[in-house]
Structure formats: structure tokens, C-alpha cells
Design a binder for these strands. Structure first.
Lengths: 216, 216
DNA sequence: CGTGTACTTGAGTGGGCTCAAGCAGGGTGG
DNA sequence: CCACCCTGCTTGAGCCCACTCAAGTACACG
């Protein structure tokens, strides 16, 4: 095996199944300000990354889905930059930080991969800025865009976050989100599924949502 | 010189004065989608990083000031991710991408620095998300926060962006920004200075602005 | 001095926030 | 197994901030 060809996936795959953990809805995977102990590869479910804000009690700045890595931001820092919270049932594999750092130090090529991962996160954050958050764009449009981003894989299933979470993401109030979701349901654009706290999700009319997401 | 101790600054310093360029107000330093040719270290002035959006004609997702590096995002990519535009007079030193990549490849320690720079940019973007952009937060508060972020060094001078630019940053309209700025001026919180297109700036009452920035 | 762009200011409207009840449904304890 | 309760969601009424549309103004540059 050529060192420079080792990828992040190799590291993760090596650990898969060995160190898998399950998290319930609303479980804290790690907390902002705590000592960095591990990075986590999300194998299923959704995780919200929260930055504590004096006001309101925390704003969601990113959402991680299957295949994303949580805690990378803090891989070379002393403490976590965010709080990571499970939304619905989550399965993640845990890679101790010492092991991770050792592995990265050994394989020079990995560092570039890391840089690219970081860039991807940056791009995602900027997309949120440009498309999801407030401004002149109407709330219905923003909510449609959010739902599209919460899609599970390539099907019509969509992670169903709480009304509160969706509100803090698109920068509005829970009431407004509730009203718009109701409207979407009335129009048959989305259907609520899996009410059992684990596996809450929508089934959405992707094409219709995409149309709304392009309005004004 | 120990290789692992080489910093980004060393690379920049080596080039300082040799490859310095001046840009006028509104000059495009590089455009989104163009082939990556160089990275730029900002030595003075302010640069807005724009992501073209089908709607409205581009949203500003980050602002670079003295000491920041433009184009790092695309250092290992084919094409630039943003358009970089000078706001007021800008001086920047240009480091050809081939040279930059060569330099990074030679000095392993630099890669970690790069990763950290990328993380810093990510943190900045997330701060914008949490503090600057729309949501329930009143426009006056957001504008006060923006002005504080546009501070030049540690004094009371503040980069004066166009009313339009400030509007797209905090996610509001030019009219609203104009009204709030007028109000600030009436209250003596800020004073307009340097109307000569180059070196436009405010003088601001930092303490007062900080107080407003913490409201609601 | 003319011209154009950017900014300012006004009036009116509407989207979304606030405040305040009611409702549903699922988890828990009896 | 059922009833309770508690949290999260829904829905309504009223109001206000900020958006829209539309002139008017100031200033920088040619």
C-alpha cells in the first residue's frame, strides 16, 4: 500500500464495526469547550452542529449526514468548537483523537485530504449563508431549500427536524415554520412519516420543492 | 532553517515587495470559475469574497482584511470558488500557484498551517451565520455587529463599504441600511470620513456600537 | 460644468413576529 | 392496559419592522 494513497475512508473503514456507537435522539455526542477526545464518522442518521450563542441558546450552523465526519474542526485543537447533538437515532464510529493524529502524521497524503474536507465544510457553510438564511428571501423558499438539503440519500425521504431546529437554521420562528410546513402538507408537497421519535422523516415531492426553492 | 518551522508568513515575507500589486476600488482580483493562478496576501485595504447567486447577482460571503490570504480555498482546486473584488484601494502580494504548491510540498509543517487557516475561515463563516445574518435579530443590531467586524486594526476606523454591499452582507435592503446609518450618524455613533472613493471609512464610537451589538 | 451613480428620504403595505390559547400523541406510572 | 401529563406542535389575532416603489438629492468624476 502506497502511503500517499491512503484516504480518510481507509481509516474509517478500518474502524467500522469495531467502535460503532448508537446515540438516541437529542443525545450529545460531544460538547463545545470540552477537551477533544475523538472524531466521529456518521454512519447513519443526522447530527446538528450547534454553536452556543449568548442569545436564544445556540444556533445550528451545520448539519452532518451519513458519511460526514464530526469533530474534524477540532482535530488539531485543544477543545471542540461545537456541540454535536443527535437528531433521531444516530450510528457513528468513534476514532480516538490520539490514534487519529498518529495516523495523519504517518501518511502525508492524508493532510491534503483533511484540507479538502475542511474546504468542503467551508463551502457548505457559505451555501447556507447564501441560500438558507434570512434576507429578502421569503421563508417558504428558504424552508423548501432546507428540506432539499436534509434529503436522505437520493430518494424522497427527508430528515424531519423539530420545528424549533428548522426555525433556528433558516433564521425564523417556530410558529412560521409550523405554518409553512402545514401548508406544504395541505398541498401534498410533503407527507409526515415515522412519528416514533426515532426515524422521523418526511416524504417529499422533490421536483415541486425544487421549484419553490427557486422562487424570488 | 528547520523545514517544519517554516510558516506561511515566511513564504509571504519572501515575496513581499517583489510581487506587490495595487488594485483600484471595484477591481476584480480573480473571478469565480477562472483557472486558479495564484494566491494573494492582502497587505492593506479590504476585499469582498462573492459567490455568484442566480438571484440578485452575487452574495458576499466573507470579507478579507490586512493579513488575510485570498484564494487559499482554491489552492488545490482547478478553479476559484469565489470572485474577489477590491473595496477601496487594495495592496496585495501575488504568489503564483505553481510556486505556492511547490513550497507547500517541500515543507510538511505548512500543511497543518494551511488546515488551520481553512478552519479559521470556517469559523468566520459560521460566526457570520450566527451573528450577522437575518433571523429574529433587528437590522440595527446586525449592522452594528458588521461595523465592528469591519474595524481597521484596533483604532476607531472602520472600512466603509457601499450601502449595497452592507445590505447583501447582513441580508437586508440598501434602503434599510441607509436609514440605520443615517440614524447612527445623527446620534454621533459614527462619522463618515474620506469620501474620495479610495480610503472611504467611518470613525466609530466602538463602545457604543458594542452596546448596540448586544441588544435583543 | 454636466452627467451619472450612489445615496437618501418618504409613504404605504405586507410578511413574519409576538403573545396567547388550544391540541395531539407518546411516554410513564399506576 | 389505560389514563394522565407533558412537551412539542398548531392555530389565531393584532401589530410592527422592514420591504417595495418612487422621487428627490448630493457628490465624484470626466
Amino acid at each position: 500500500m502506497v502511503c500517499s494513497d491512503v484516504t480518510l475512508d481507509d481509516l474509517v473503514d478500518f474502524h467500522a464495526g469495531i467502535d460503532d456507537f448508537d446515540y438516541d435522539h437529542d443525545a450529545t455526542i460531544f460538547g463545545m469547550g470540552e477537551a477533544t477526545e475523538a472524531v466521529y464518522c456518521i454512519r447513519g442518521g443526522a447530527v446538528k452542529m450547534v454553536r452556543a450563542d449568548p442569545a436564544v441558546g445556540g444556533r445550528i450552523v451545520r448539519v452532518l449526514k451519513k458519511g460526514d465526519v464530526a469533530g474534524l474542526e477540532s482535530a488539531f485543537a485543544e477543545r471542540y468548537e461545537h456541540t454535536a447533538v443527535a437528531v433521531g437515532a444516530v450510528r457513528a464510529c468513534r476514532i480516538p483523537i490520539a490514534y487519529f493524529r498518529h495516523f495523519v502524521a504517518k501518511h502525508a497524503g492524508l493532510q491534503v485530504r483533511l484540507f479538502e474536507k475542511s474546504q468542503a465544510a467551508l463551502r457548505e457553510a457559505e451555501t447556507w449563508l447564501a441560500e438558507l438564511v434570512g434576507g429578502t428571501i421569503p421563508a417558504r423558499t428558504r424552508l423548501a431549500r432546507l428540506l432539499l438539503r436534509l434529503r436522505i440519500g437520493d430518494g424522497d425521504r427527508i430528515h424531519r427536524f423539530s420545528v424549533n431546529d428548522m426555525a433556528t437554521i433558516i433564521g425564523t420562528t417556530p410558529e412560521t415554520v409550523s405554518r409553512i410546513v402545514s401548508e406544504f402538507v395541505r398541498q401534498g408537497l410533503v407527507v409526515k412519516g415515522g412519528n416514533s421519535i426515532v426515524s422521523r422523516h418526511f416524504r417529499g415531492d422533490i421536483a415541486a420543492l425544487e421549484k419553490i426553492s427557486q422562487e424570488a
